[in-house]
Every structure is written in structure tokens, then in C-alpha cells.
Design a protein around this nucleic acid. Structure first.
Lengths: 207, 207
DNA sequence: ACCTGAACACCGTTCAAGT
DNA sequence: ACCTGAACACCGTTCAAGT
């Protein structure tokens, strides 16, 4: 009867539950906010017992870390795609990273929220830390090319990277929190293009 | 006996419990992180029954909103103090706001976390929104003075304010999360002074 | 190997009752 | 007015037991 159908549905999750749990978590966060995410709600949504997710995640934090890792992978792909579009100009490449970051935050708010709201200790190591380092390295390379061509001031490129990162991250944060003034059209990520390279041009003297 | 002493301690909280609850919440967040903050832990720390805080706060979120409001008041005072130090030069005044913001984030991490991590609906109105608006207005005035003296590009000053705000907020965020490179000395807030006014000098063309 | 059901400790919140 | 104690619904997590 109905019970048989439920059982069939459950059987479907054999070997696939891990991905389903992540997807359901993202959906719940997206629809009802991070506070509404409970393991039990995930399990219920998937028609699975409340303890089933523990087969695939050691804890709720481990699930959040998996969502974050997925987010960082997506961000990485977004950056790569935008870099290809940018072509060879180093300033354009620098811009592309910021545009990709902003676009990612806008297009994947649930992932973005988890990536920076909850920061379990798992984030300091493993795939999340790797992705973070990789994005930093890409940006630094773009800045160094700008410096070589005389389009950014001399000095430690890391300072420029951090400044740009802080700017874009802060902007994404303010956007996410709805704290940007109405006339500030950040919905189109490309409108930021002109603002990001200001970090290449001035003000970055050593302290 | 011991019971009498507890009773005396409790009596002390007559008319004073509200402030004590806020202070205890800040301490718990500072020592054990926002996740460890429970109304019950606050009550226990104050030697009061678990339901006593409900006399002063309608909910846990209301308590968090009160912590945030206290944070915004402190930030406001910090900005005013730094503005006095800055004197009359408009660029210095613009800098002062960013310095005060960064210094506040460093000196009051528990408040800062609550102000931007948890965002209950209470934040959209009331004292929190007021403080936010006031800080924005102060910054905008500083920018407009810079523009009048030819030390910032023409155009909508709000764009410069938002860019500077995003930058400083992002930097504080990265600092709070321990995501800044080791050689990036943000612990001394004043080392940011040279970086903040870059928003006044370039790159802020209209999109 | 993967899932269930019952149980435990903990939480926010409510409410009748105490002073 | 202010606080307590018991209770409710909910949560993360554990574990013996099922297939």
C-alpha cells in the first residue's frame, strides 16, 4: 500500500543519500533560512528516518562543511569560466575574479551563507581551505601580472589581493543582508567591474 | 545557609537583571562562541531561574537584538571619538570612521559577531537600523566635504560610502574569521589608514 | 552496508503558581 | 512586579536491533 511506496522511495536512496542530503540542506536554507536547517527536517523531506543522515555525515557540522565544500567547488568553476571570458588583459583577469565572486554570492545565496556564516573547525583544513588558498593564488598571479606591466603599484601583491578580497566579500555580505542602498545596483555583478580595479591604482602604500 | 546566600544574590537582580543578562550573554559569546549562548546558560551563570530572562526579553532573538543595539551604540561613540581626534581635514575624517569601525570590531568581537552574524528581523527597524543610518550619514557627509574640496571624484557620494563600508566591513569579517594572511597586520587598526581613502581617489566612475 | 526506533540530554518557550 | 518549577515540543546524537 502506501507503506510499500514509501519503502520503494527509501530504497532509492541506497548509495545516493549523501548527495540527496546535501541538496535537501541547500534547499531548506534557501527557502527558510539557515536557522530552519535541522537534520530531522532534511531526513523528513527525503522520507528517510531521522538517523539515516548519520550514515553519511558524522554530525550536523560535517554536513555544513560538505555544503561549504560544494560551494567552494562551484565558486572555483565560476572563477575559471570568468577568467576565460576575460582573455589575456591582466586587469580584466583581476576584475573577472571579483565579478565571479559577486555573481556566485548572488546566484548561490544558500551556499554563500554557509560558507561564511557558520565556520566549523573543519574549514581550517581540507577541501575548504584548499579552495580558499587556490582562489587567493589565482588573484595574486593576476595582480603580479598587473605589476609587471606597470598597471599596479609595486610592493607586496598580497596586500592588494587582501584589499580586493575584503572589498568584494564585504559587498557580497552587505548585499546578502539587504544593507545596500536601493540605488546601488549590485544585482548585476558586472556593474562592479569598474570598482574592483581601484585597488590596482592607488592607496596601497605600505603602512 | 547556602540557600539563603543564593536567595540574597537573586534579590540583587531585582531591577537590574536586564543589564546582567546582556553582559552575561556577551561574556559567554566571547569565551565560548555564539553557538554556546543559550538562555539557560545565561540564567545559570546569573544564579537565576531559567525562565527569569523572559521577564526582560520576549525571546532569545530579542536578547541578541539588545546585544547588537548595545554594540551599535558603542560603535557610534567610537566613531565620534575618532572623528574628534581627526580634526578638520575631510580625508582624515573619512579615514577616522573606517579606523573606528575596524577598532570596534577588534575590541568588541562578541558584539561584532552578533551584529552581523545573527540578523533577526528586529534589526530592520528600531535602534539598530537607526545606528546604521547614522553611521552612513556621517560617512556621506565626510565624503561630500572631500568632494567640495576636490579631494574625491564628483558623482553620487553614496557609491563611495558603500565601497568604503564594504571594504572595511569585509576586512573586519576576514579578520574575525582568521582568514587574513599572517603578514597582513590588521591588529593595529591604524595601519588601515592609508588604504581606506583609496576610495576617494579613483575607480569610482558611474557604471 | 544501510536504515530504523527508542532513548538521552539539551534547548526555547509557556504557564500556573508562588512572594 | 518579579521569579520559580513543571511541562511541552523540538533538537543533535547514540545505540541496539533489524534487513
Amino acid at each position: 500500500l502506501a507503506k510499500a511506496r514509501v519503502r520503494a522511495k527509501r530504497a532509492y536512496h541506497h548509495g545516493d543519500l549523501r548527495e540527496s542530503v546535501i541538496a535537501a540542506a541547500v534547499q531548506i536554507i534557501g527557502k527558510r533560512g539557515p536557522k530552519a536547517l535541522t537534520l530531522r527536517s532534511v531526513a523528513h523531506r527525503l522520507g528517510v528516518s531521522q538517523t539515516a543522515p548519520y550514515r553519511h555525515f558524522a554530525s550536523k557540522e560535517a554536513l555544513l562543511a560538505a555544503v561549504a565544500a560544494e560551494g567552494f567547488r562551484t565558486l572555483e568553476k565560476r572563477i575559471e569560466a570568468e577568467m576565460v571570458l576575460a582573455g589575456g588583459d591582466p586587469v580584466e583577469r583581476f576584475r573577472a575574479i571579483g565579478i565571479a565572486y559577486m555573481a556566485f554570492a548572488i546566484e548561490h545565496p544558500a551556499h554563500f551563507t554557509i560558507m561564511y556564516a557558520a565556520r566549523p573547525p573543519e574549514f581550517s583544513q581540507g577541501p575548504v581551505a584548499d579552495a580558499s588558498r587556490h582562489a587567493f593564488k589565482l588573484t595574486k598571479e593576476a595582480v603580479e601580472r598587473c605589476q609587471r606591466e606597470g598597471r599596479a603599484p609595486k610592493g607586496d601583491p598580497s596586500r592588494i589581493v587582501v584589499a580586493a578580497w575584503a572589498f568584494v566579500h564585504g559587498l557580497a555580505m552587505l548585499y546578502e543582508n539587504g544593507q545596500l542602498p536601493k540605488n546601488y545596483d549590485v544585482k548585476s555583478a558586472r556593474s562592479l567591474a569598474r570598482q574592483i580595479p581601484l585597488f590596482l591604482r592607488s592607496g596601497l602604500d605600505q603602512p
